[in-house]
């Protein structure tokens, strides 16, 4: 492989890392703060992409409106799902997995039956392509990277600097104590879950121009997002950032050498080994016991 090709692979790998970061954030937050594995996450991505298609591509509204709509709709859907379904199953692993799995089936089949099997294409909101020497990069990928880092920072701000974030962290650490301080932890749960789902919808809208929008879009993200969560762990969002970069860079480079499926298999094997060595994720936050 020539050095310029390797550089190209590394650059596009880095760009995809930020996409993966954005698509996994919601999942990590829901798992980290609520101990719930949200299997409906990737189908929420798919729904977000469809919202983006209908608001931006079909209705012709500005892209930012599509992003906000996707976030808002998924946020409300998340709140509804938490209130109606998830809140009954806290602490029961099999049940939450089955319930969120059921929701994901409903979302996917609903999309298929309501919106059809046709592929839908969403145009890039910014079309310029940057070029340095032989390395190309679509400007939209830069926008996505910026958005992704922005969302990560905003989330960190929300969790560590606001009152709501303090309540979320308190509810995670000691539920009954938090309740006895007069905080409505049920509301906090709903908010956290809705925020995670909202991020999934937002991420779906962001990735819509990068992929064809169809009902199988969720499934195509499933492997990568879940591997990312397993590898990055949930104790620190920086672990997610690091594992996003690691996974996508390796997938990108190995894809260049052979093909993308082999790349994914190798990365999955590596993830399985890494989890054994570092079961709490790449960056383990020091926990007070």
């Amino acid at each position: 492989m020539s050095p310029s090709m390797l550089l190209q692979l590394l650059v596009s790998g880095l760009a995809s890392s930020f996409v993966l970061l954005l698509t996994s954030l919601g999942l990590v937050i829901i798992l980290g703060y609520m101990k719930v594995v949200n299997l409906a996450h990737t189908e929420m991505l798919m729904s977000g992409a469809f919202i983006c298609y209908y608001v931006y591509q079909a209705a012709g509204l500005p892209f930012i409106v599509a992003l906000l709509t996707a976030f808002a709709v998924s946020f409300l859907f998340g709140a509804l799902v938490e209130r109606l379904i998830i809140c009954h199953f806290y602490g029961k692993m099999s049940e939450t997995l089955l319930a969120t799995y059921a929701i994901s089936i409903l979302l996917k089949q609903g999309a298929l039956l309501l919106l059809g099997k046709n592929y839908k294409k969403v145009d890039y909101p910014v079309k310029a392509v940057f070029q340095w020497g032989s390395v190309y990069l679509e400007s939209y990928k830069l926008v996505v990277a910026g958005l992704s880092v922005g969302v990560l920072l905003l989330t960190l701000l929300l969790i560590y600097k606001t009152k709501t974030g303090r309540m979320i962290r308190a509810a995670m650490q000691n539920r009954s104590m938090t309740e006895s301080l007069g905080i409505n932890t049920k509301k906090v749960d709903t908010l956290t879950f809705a925020y995670g789902m909202g991020l999934a919808g937002l991420a779906g809208a962001v990735i819509a121009p990068l992929s064809t929008v169809t009902y199988t879009l969720g499934e195509s993200w499933l492997t990568n997002t879940f591997m990312n969560v397993v590898m990055g762990g949930v104790s620190s969002l920086f672990g997610t950032l690091a594992s996003s970069v690691l996974i996508q860079e390796s997938v990108s480079v190995i894809s260049g050498l052979s093909n993308s499926v082999t790349a994914q298999i190798i990365v999955l094997l590596v993830v399985i080994v890494v989890v054994r060595l570092k079961p709490d994720g790449l960056f383990t936050a020091k926990e007070r016991r």
Partner: peptide
């Protein structure tokens, strides 16, 4: 061999197997 160590959360087993099916 890799997933069944005491420190790994049980739910990771579900996620890894799900990812495996996708791949």
């Amino acid at each position: 061999l890799f997933m069944f160590s005491g420190k790994i959360r049980g739910v990771f087993f579900s996620l890894i197997t799900l990812a495996l099916a996708g791949i």
